[in-house]
């Protein structure tokens, strides 16, 4: 039985990848279990300067998921390279996905170039899909032109494979995916969170100080799956499928829809051991569904 997959020339021992913003820079989880069991993970979205993020409350709940409006709190790229990555290298021995954020094309390029020079970084994930910041993030991911512009600028500045992370908050995600591929993207990850809100019946005001936040968790899984399906039909580059994935069965389903690797987000926050448990149960689930080689099922649902 073979769980390995290949993402832009780098082999992952399994396709399970904790998603950006739910795994910090790995340290909290390394205290709980040996995170080397993971395929890799995507670090917290990182900007050029330190950010405190949005005012609180910035967490809310839905029936089958959660909303966040954290707004890219992070210590800034220089502190990440000076403090977080060295600490991580002591406990994690695989290349990581570095999540790159920005408020201008120049900022994306600056952050991406600095991560590109780090030996522990395997891929750059360009986040043009954060719904919780103004004047950046998702602003770049909602049109083909701006998505392509960021992709091309980062590609021209770095050596490592570039993954572009897409937002579901668009009319036609496949066309944006295609634009990123044409601009040189080596892979795509989708979906980021779905813009949503809640209102407190007592105060009669929005729960989140930011008013809106991004919905994640099992509620969005079918929506994410549909988008992975559509994007798989539109592009030739590999896809990291994510959005509400909570079990090894969800991993298989995402891969059948077209994902080469699978991100796990909100589920980590409810059960900090979920990714380890998924890695451990994946072979049993493969056996149950008569899957010998996990690579073989990528996009399998598109073929009769």
């Amino acid at each position: 039985m073979n769980t390995s997959v290949n993402l832009c020339g780098i082999t992952l021992s399994n396709p399970i990848i904790p998603a950006s913003g739910t795994f910090g820079y790995g340290r909290e989880f390394a205290e709980l279990y040996d995170i080397n069991c993971l395929g890799t993970f995507s670090c917290k979205g990182t900007t050029a300067q330190p950010r405190l993020g949005n005012p609180t409350p910035r967490i809310a709940e839905g029936s089958c998921g959660m909303l966040n409006a954290v707004g890219l709190q992070n210590p800034g790229i220089d502190a990440v390279i000076a403090e977080e990555l060295p600490a991580l290298e002591r406990v994690f021995h695989k290349p990581i996905i570095a999540n790159v954020c920005g408020f201008s094309v120049a900022e994306y390029v600056t952050v991406a170039k600095k991560f590109d020079a780090c030996p522990s970084v395997g891929w750059l994930e360009v986040n043009i899909s954060c719904p919780n910041v103004h004047g950046g993030g998702m602003g770049f991911g909602t049109s083909c032109e701006s998505a392509a512009e960021v992709t091309a600028a980062v590609k021209a500045a770095v050596q490592k494979p570039v993954i572009v992370k897409l937002t579901p908050n668009v009319t036609d995600i496949a066309s944006i995916a295609k634009a990123c591929e044409d601009a040189g993207a080596d892979a795509l990850s989708l979906i980021n969170t779905v813009m949503a809100m809640r209102i407190d019946l007592n105060t009669k005001q929005p729960v989140l100080k930011n008013i809106t936040g991004g919905l994640s968790g099992p509620a969005v899984f079918p929506l994410a799956l549909r988008m992975v399906w559509q994007v798989y039909e539109a592009v030739r580059i590999p896809i990291i499928g994510l959005g509400g994935v909570s079990s090894a069965r969800d991993v298989i389903e995402m891969m059948l829809a077209g994902a080469t690797a699978v991100g796990v987000g909100a589920a980590n926050l409810k059960n900090p051991f979920i990714c380890k448990q998924m890695v451990e149960t994946l072979p049993d689930i493969m056996l149950q569904y008569e899957i010998e080689n996990l690579k073989d099922i990528i996009g399998r649902a598109h073929r009769n």
Partner: peptide, 11 residues
């Protein structure tokens, strides 16, 4: 969100 330092929800 999480309660163990991962999500940055309660900063």
């Amino acid at each position: 969100g999480c309660g163990f330092g991962a999500c940055m929800g309660c900063t």
